[in-house]
Every structure is written in C-alpha cells, then in structure tokens.
C-alpha cells in the first residue's frame, strides 16, 4: 500500500513535469526549420517521394543503422540467452502439443507466400509509399510467426537466418561506406543516380538499403521468434 502511494506521489511529480510540457506547448502552424528543409529539398536532393523514408534512410541514416543494430543485438542476445538452455536439453519435445487445427494449417499455406510477397513489396516501395524496410521486415517475420503457430516444432535454420542477417547488414554498411567515396558522405544515397522522381528505381540507394533493412529486420525478427519458440522445448 505504502509502495503504491509512494509511486503515485512520484508519478504525480512526473505528471507535473508533463503538465508543464503540455501547458507550455503551442502547436506549430507551419513547419519549423528542419521540417521545411526536408519538405523543400527532399524531392530534388534525395529523390524520394516519401519524405519520412528519405529522413530515415538518408538524412538520419546513422540512426537507422543503429536501429538495425539494435535488432541485431537483441536477436543475438536472445539467442545467447535462450540458446544455452536448448543446447543442453536437445531438440526433442517431451509433451504433446495440441493440434493447431485445420483452418490455421490450410490458411497458412495460402497466406505465407502472400505475406512474404507483401512484405517484399512494402520494403521495396518504401521510398514511394508509406512503409519501408522495418514495416516490410515485420511483415515478413509475421509469415514466420504464422508458420510457427501452425507447427511449433518446425525447425528453422539458424545458420540461414544469421547469414541473411550478416549479409544484409554488411551490404548496408558497404553502401554507406560507398557514400563516403562516391557521394557526399557516409550513407549518402546518391551513389546511384537519383532517377526519375516517383518511379521504383529512383531515390538512389534508398530502395536497395530499404530492401536490405527489410531482409535484415525480417531475419532478426524471425530469429527472435524462432528462439522464443524453441524455449518451448525445454
């Protein structure tokens, strides 16, 4: 009880801070300096229709690299955390799992390819439409999830996943480094021609990068999912 009261009390304090933020906040009527720059320059500089994508992949590409690394790290650590127990116990599952059901099994046969396709579409078109590598990667991973739900004992190759992870990561980095030599700096997308605004092969390296991100994110999400699902075994 006392603990709750104390927590409430301090949250009230934090609430005060938030209230201060809220009361002092005045919504902008127009874009600020940064926003305006992006609105005005993205199209001709980067060539991406989706400004958010331009920001994510190019302007703040370093953040994104970090982001990808976060997922990479998480996947790695989860693997370390959960992998050890599995290795000791072996892969065989002692108890019977309930059947996943006809509907789910059949549905997944139908859906998985479609989902994978959608995922690929989303990350390839990230520079044009809402969406992008992360979203696409998540969609791809959801296909894996679906497969795991259907058959919890399905074995995915850790090696494959990690190779996809590594290759996509290295290529991402490599493209970034190419930016230093061929264009204005690390992660500059203009190592390829910007192309025609609005078309698929435009915006320089953005589609490539976003695809790599998509692959990597997909692989990492999958890796985490697989690792979690394998804990079922112990």
């Amino acid at each position: 009880m006392i603990k709750r009261f104390i927590v409430l009390l301090f949250l009230l304090g934090l609430g005060l801070v938030f209230a201060g933020l809220l009361s002092g906040y005045s919504a902008d009527n127009e874009l600020n300096l940064t926003g305006r720059y992006y609105a005005e320059h993205t199209a001709q500089d980067i060539g991406a229709a989706n400004i958010v994508t331009a920001i994510i992949v190019t302007y703040r590409g370093l953040d994104t690299l970090g982001e990808v690394t976060v997922l990479f790290l998480t996947a790695t650590i989860v693997a370390v955390l959960l992998g050890r127990g599995v290795a000791q116990k072996g892969k065989s599952l002692q108890r019977d799992l309930p059947k996943s059901g006809e509907l789910l099994t059949t549905g997944s046969f139908l859906l998985v390819p479609l989902i994978l396709l959608l995922g690929a579409y989303v990350f390839i078109n990230g520079h044009l439409t809402p969406g992008g590598g992360f979203q696409g990667g998540a969609i791809v991973a959801s296909a894996i999830l679906l497969m795991l739900l259907t058959d919890p004992l399905r074995h995915f190759s850790h090696r494959l996943i990690s190779i996809i992870e590594s290759i996509s990561g290295l290529f991402f980095l490599g493209i970034g480094v190419l930016g230093i030599f061929l264009a204005g700096g690390f992660l500059d997308n203009r190592i390829f021609p910007i192309g025609e605004f609005g078309s698929l092969f435009s915006a320089g390296a953005i589609p490539v990068i976003y695809s790599l991100i998509g692959l990597k994110v997909g692989a990492e999400f999958s890796s985490m999912l697989v690792n979690f699902s394998e804990t079922e075994g112990s």
């Binding site: 302007y59 590409g61 204005g184």
Partner: peptide, 13 residues
C-alpha cells in the same frame, strides 16, 4: 566535422 548523408547539419546527423 564529419557529415553524413551528404547533407549539412542540422538536417543530417
């Protein structure tokens, strides 16, 4: 200064 993305700060990191 090391600029990324071929753009000057504050618009790029």
């Amino acid at each position: 200064e090391i600029f990324t993305a071929g753009t000057l700060p504050p618009f790029a990191i």
